[in-house]
Amino acid sequence: MVLSDNSSIFPLEIGEPSPRLLLGPEDATAERNLIDEVRTEAHLAELALKQRMSVRYNEGMVKRHFEVDLGKGAYELERLNGCKIPKSWNAANLRRFYP
């Protein structure tokens, strides 16, 4: 479709006009109320997003249960033949082993 130089395209407003257009620029109180409402909606949307991200992250976490008297997640390891390994290991450095 080719438009001539003297023709213009005007965007049509679809749906209801914005509250700002309905109230006009003179009503400063209504403008502040609209700003507060938009700010509140954005805050609630942010909280909902953070909660969804937290749930998604926590689904992938491995739950660990530690025994009493092991400190802050430290394990004393031993070999299969019963010989103890001299240093203790933090649980963050250990991986499950399936023989």
Rank of each mutant, 00 (worst) to 15 (best):
D27Y: 00
N6D: 05
D69H: 12
L80V: 01
E78D: 01
K87R: 15
M61Y: 10
K84P: 00
L47K: 11
L21Q: 12
E16F: 08
H43D: 13
M61I: 14
G60E: 07
E76N: 14
A74N: 15
V62N: 13
G24A: 04
Q51M: 08
I9N: 05
R64W: 15
F10M: 04
S7F: 03
P17A: 08
G60N: 09
A30P: 02
G82H: 02
C83T: 14
P86S: 08
T40H: 09
G71C: 05
E78G: 03
W89G: 01
R79C: 06
D5S: 08
M61E: 13
L77T: 01
K63R: 14
D69P: 01
M53H: 14
R95E: 04
L77Y: 00
R20F: 13
V38A: 13
P17G: 07
A91Y: 04
N93H: 06
E78K: 06
E31A: 12
S18V: 04
R79P: 07
L22G: 02
A74D: 11
G15Y: 05
P99L: 03
E13D: 06
V68Y: 11
L47F: 09
T40D: 07
L22A: 11
I85H: 01
W89Q: 01
V62E: 14
N6W: 02
A74G: 08
V62T: 15
Y98H: 02
M1L: 08
E37F: 09
Y75R: 03
G73K: 04
P99K: 00
C83E: 10
Y57S: 15
K63E: 10
I9A: 04
Y98F: 02
P86G: 05
R95H: 04
L22R: 14
P25A: 09
E59I: 11
M53W: 13
D5L: 07
E67T: 13
E37C: 09
L12S: 01
E59L: 15
C83G: 05
E59A: 10
A45F: 03
W89N: 03
E59C: 11
H43Q: 13
R32S: 04
N90I: 01
P25C: 06
E76S: 14
I35N: 13
L70E: 12
K50N: 14
T29V: 15
A45N: 08
E16N: 12
E41R: 09
L47C: 10
I9K: 05
I14E: 05
R79W: 06
E76F: 12
P86N: 00
P19M: 00
R79A: 05
G24I: 03
A48D: 11
D27T: 06
V2T: 10
D5M: 08
F66A: 07
K84N: 03
L34T: 03
I85C: 03
D5E: 07
G60Y: 02
L12C: 05
Y57A: 15
G73P: 06
I9Y: 00
S4I: 06
D36G: 09
L21I: 15
V38G: 11
F10Q: 11
Y75F: 15
P17M: 05
L3H: 02
M1F: 01
E59M: 15
R64L: 15
D36K: 07
H43E: 13
M53T: 13
L47S: 04
A42R: 05
E16M: 08
L12R: 02
L12I: 06
R39A: 12
V62G: 10
Y57T: 15
I85R: 00
S4C: 07
E31F: 02
G73D: 07
